[in-house]
Each structure stands twice: as structure tokens, then as C-alpha cells.
Write a protein that binds this DNA or RNA. Structure first.
Lengths: 165, 165
DNA sequence: TGAAACTTTCAGAAATAATTGAAAGTTGTT
DNA sequence: AACAACTTTCAATTATTTCTGAAAGTTTCA
């Protein structure tokens, strides 16, 4: 396989992976394109290489920036904006975990809290409370793990893995 | 808040959470309904409580069964099928992780493998190979962690968390 | 066997999400 | 200030996903 074909294949797969995780295909592809590019790339480049419209490129790039995984840069002599992403895959993973934690764990914990003080002493209510209690406990542990991951570095994570039986 | 309201609220939130994770809303709601039900429920029950069609209820229930998180049961004296889910939230999490691992990690590793032996000794190719190598290494570690989680029980997981600094 | 009870399927409809492209907005230069 | 270069916005369109409901299929039992 030659390099251009490989990059293309990678971009496609990254897009598919993204859409499985609730990230839109184009957004994941833009990210993949940035990953495989040696230099920062412009909106024009994205449009050409992914065959997408200016609006689409702009919107999805903005979302990537909001997620904190893409940054704007400038190329000397060029007036337009260029974009780049951190090639450190651990940094990327940390950033994504951080986003999802904030965006999903926190709302979930809030709902569980709201629902927790349901009135009643009957069996049905007790069982419901127990379920909510279990989900809450699980969610908090997941939250704790994510928090540790976000604060960690690659080596820490690797050591933790080794420590596990 | 009284019990029916609380259950309703929970079902809605579970639906939203699901759709953030690439699980369709109805599927997540059916699952939530099973979680909060004290007895197994029938397709009719789902249709009525979630206000959905028979086809929709049937299809999504089937997918939940394929995912291994819902099972069929029978209620004595009743001819129709009933469904139930494991209320153990850890068992549920393990099952979901198992599915996603099989469905996403494996294909990703295959793509990385394909793309890894790209030809060329130039800088561009070298950098690409390095990127792929890093993603591959990360993915394998994630795979390893998932594998450990799948084989674990709640207490094991809790102990691992405590061991982490 | 036949017919009621129940389940599954799937083509079309409806809902939702993603994308386009052109106009409006902004920034920098002369 | 006027213009060119560039970015952003958003209404309209297109694509994708989900849902419906009725017909076909299956099971159970008298």
C-alpha cells in the first residue's frame, strides 16, 4: 500500500469509528485529516481533500475547536487560518474523556439526584430507590476513574494496567 | 416526587444518555422501562407505556436481546412473551463493554494493521507510521483494559480504583 | 385441522441530522 | 474609505435514521 492510499483508508475508518460514538462522520474525518497531515491545513484543504462544502468544513472545525482537540494556527506569509491537532494520542483521549465526562456524567448524576428522593415506603418504591442507588454508585465510580485518567499521563496508565491482575 | 413521575423521568434521561452513545432513543427507553419494572413486561406494555408501535417495540427489543442485555421469559398462564433485564448495573456495564469491544476495537485494530505496512522511507511515511503505531499501541491498551473489566466483578474493580494514586 | 393469539417483517412515511452555497460579516491592506 | 481576502451564518436541500402499521408468518390448543 502506498502512503496516499493508506491515509485515505485511515481517514475513512476514523470517520466510521466516530459515527459509532455519536460523533458525526465529517467531524471525525477532519480530525483524521489533521492527524495525518504534516503541516497545518486550511479550510480550503479540507474542502478539497474531503470533498465537502465550506460551511460544513467551517462548522465541524469549530466544533472540534470547542471540544479542545483542534487549534488554530497561522502560517507565515499566509493570511488565512490554519488548523492542527495534537498528535499525541493520549492527550487526545484525555481531552475526549474530559468532554464526555462533563457532558454526560454530570447531567446523569443530576437526574439520579432528582429522582432519588421519591416518596413512599412501599416495595415498588424501595426497589426503585435501590436501582437508582446502584446506578448512582456505578456512575460515581466511572466518574472517579475518568477523573484519574484525565489527570494521568501515559506511563501512569500503563503502570496501572500492569498492577491489575 | 412520586414514584410514577420518577420512573418517567428516569426513562427519558436514559433515552437521552443512550442517544449520546450511538444507541437509539427507543432502545434505551425500552431498556430503562425494563430496569424500573418489577415484573417482566410484554410488547403490549412497551407499546402502551412508551407510546410506540408494535414494529418498533419488537425490533428494538430484539436488538437488546442480540446485545445480550435483555432476555425473554414466560409468565405462567400467559401465552405471550415477556422480557426482562439484569438489574445488576455492573453486569450490564460488562455486557455493553463486551459488545463495543468486539464491534469497534477489533475492526479498528484490523484497519491499523492494514495501514501499518505502507511502503516508503521518506519523512512523510515515517511520520504516518509513527502515528499509526501510537494509535495501535493505545488501542491495544484500551482493549486490554476492557478485557480485564469484562472478566472482573464489582469488588475487583473497586479495589483497582483504590489502588490507583 | 382450523382458527385465535401472538410475533415478525418490511415498504413507505415521518422525524432528525447533516450538508450546501450564497449572502452577510469580519479583518487587514493600500 | 474602499476593496480584497477571508470567515461565519443559516435557510433550504439532501441524506440518514427511525418509526409505523398492516400483512405475512408462527405457535398453540381445542
Amino acid at each position: 500500500m502506498e502512503i496516499e492510499e493508506a491515509k485515505q483508508h485511515f481517514i475513512q475508518s476514523w470517520g466510521t469509528l466516530g459515527s459509532n460514538w455519536g460523533v458525526n462522520r465529517t467531524m471525525a474525518q477532519i480530525h483524521a485529516l489533521l492527524l495525518v497531515s504534516n503541516e497545518p491545513i486550511s479550510t480550503e484543504d479540507m474542502m478539497e481533500q474531503l470533498q465537502i462544502s465550506r460551511g460544513n468544513a467551517n462548522m465541524n472545525t469549530r466544533t472540534l475547536i470547542e471540544w479542545g482537540i483542534v487549534t488554530k494556527t497561522h502560517v507565515p506569509g499566509e493570511r488565512k487560518e490554519f488548523f492542527q491537532t495534537d498528535k499525541d494520542i493520549w492527550a487526545l483521549a484525555r481531552q475526549v474523556v474530559k468532554q464526555r465526562r462533563q457532558r454526560e456524567i454530570e447531567p446523569m448524576l443530576r437526574v439520579l439526584q432528582e429522582v432519588k428522593d421519591v416518596e413512599g415506603k412501599d416495595k415498588e418504591t424501595k426497589e426503585f430507590k435501590e436501582l437508582i442507588e446502584n446506578i448512582d454508585s456505578f456512575t460515581q465510580k466511572a466518574d472517579d476513574l475518568m477523573d484519574k485518567f484525565i489527570r494521568s499521563d501515559e506511563h501512569w496508565f500503563y503502570r496501572q494496567l500492569l498492577k491489575m491482575v
